[in-house]
Amino acid sequence: MVHLIRYGLVLVVVAFAVYYLATQWDDIVHALSVMSWQSVVLSQILVLVGLAFGTLSWVTILNGLGPKVPLLRGSQVLLVGQLGKYVPGSVWSYVMQMELGRQYGILRARVLVTALYAAGIGVVASLMLGALALPVVVEGHEWLLWLFLLLPIGLVCLHPRIMTALASFVLKLFRRPPLEHRVSYGTVLGGLGWSLLSYVAYGLHLWLLLNSLVDPDLGSLILLTGAIALGFTIGLLAFFLPSGIGVREAILIAAMGTLITLPEATAISLASRAMFTVGDLLAAGIAIGFVLLLRRRLRREQYDYLREEVRYEHGTQTADAEPDSVR
């Protein structure tokens, strides 16, 4: 019954994502029709590359908080779980990640701490790159300056000592033992580095779409990278909207409006949103496909991981640390 509920939840969030594409289909097709197919294909590939970098950031943080989780398992937890962002109220993404993590033996509390810190690192990375686009985007959106008050706070929270203390506090709320080690600088820098690379890939994604209409230079690439990074943070804060829809596009249109006409900027932002939705669905499907193909190897790795998790929990086996497939 528990398995059926989980699979049902996955089907619901996939349905929401597909529904978004269906409702916007005519506008999306019109937007893509003015762009060269080569740019569209390469741009879609860069979305997948950015998602891969973001996944590496998430798994780096996850493995920095406890026993190492196989990359494929961690990827499946994130990529399938994050489809929950298409359901109004972004909390569903975190719920799905925790439930999928529990199914594979990863403590819910650890998945939640990972998700929160991945979001925080993403905000820090986006604000660092968003500063590149701020002089252009801020015109008419002066309130965006307030966002940068989060940057020093975020940088302080990324210090390994503070990160360890906050992670242990959340684990305590879940009645779990605190971290038995301090989060390393490698975990923090690795998570931040992969996150920065993901935004650079997304900036290139936009730059290629723009290349179908004008001949953009290096300066426009820097601008678009900063704009899309900033748009992701604003979309994250607008948690009441499915995947931050609308607010991210407003930032992109403001940035691209300095390079192309407003209708063209609107078309590109709409096409970009659709390509991210397709990318999310493809990435989740690819992750599930690899897990099914390599399920025997992953099952062996899962037993090894469980033994390490039990040791990490000071020899106390709990139902939350044991996957459903083993029981």
Score class of each variant (00 low, 15 high):
193 G>M: 10
170 V>G: 10
146 W>L: 15
176 R>M: 14
155 L>H: 09
244 G>Q: 05
158 L>Y: 04
211 N>Q: 14
184 S>G: 10
150 L>K: 01
168 S>G: 10
237 L>S: 05
168 S>M: 04
147 L>V: 04
120 G>V: 02
204 L>D: 09
233 T>I: 04
230 L>Q: 02
118 A>V: 03
196 L>T: 03
213 L>F: 10
131 A>R: 00
163 M>Q: 10
235 G>S: 11
220 S>R: 01
155 L>A: 13
247 V>P: 12
160 P>M: 04
246 G>S: 07
151 L>T: 02
172 K>D: 15
163 M>R: 00
119 A>R: 00
133 A>G: 13
213 L>I: 14
247 V>H: 06
229 A>G: 12
193 G>K: 02
186 G>H: 11
244 G>D: 11
119 A>T: 14
243 S>Q: 12
202 Y>E: 08
196 L>N: 09
248 R>D: 12
175 R>Y: 11
236 L>E: 06
219 G>H: 11
165 A>P: 04
150 L>S: 09
232 F>A: 02
183 V>R: 00
148 F>Y: 15
173 L>S: 10
240 F>K: 00
178 P>T: 07
196 L>F: 11
202 Y>A: 08
120 G>F: 03
133 A>T: 11
129 L>M: 02
242 P>R: 02
145 L>F: 13
247 V>E: 09
248 R>L: 08
147 L>I: 05
126 S>C: 06
200 V>K: 00
232 F>D: 09
211 N>E: 15
218 L>C: 01
149 L>A: 15
168 S>E: 08
158 L>M: 13
234 I>A: 11
139 E>A: 09
151 L>A: 04
164 T>N: 06
184 S>C: 04
132 L>W: 15
147 L>P: 04
118 A>F: 14
194 W>F: 15
135 P>D: 14
178 P>Q: 03
122 G>T: 12
209 L>S: 09
194 W>C: 09
168 S>C: 05
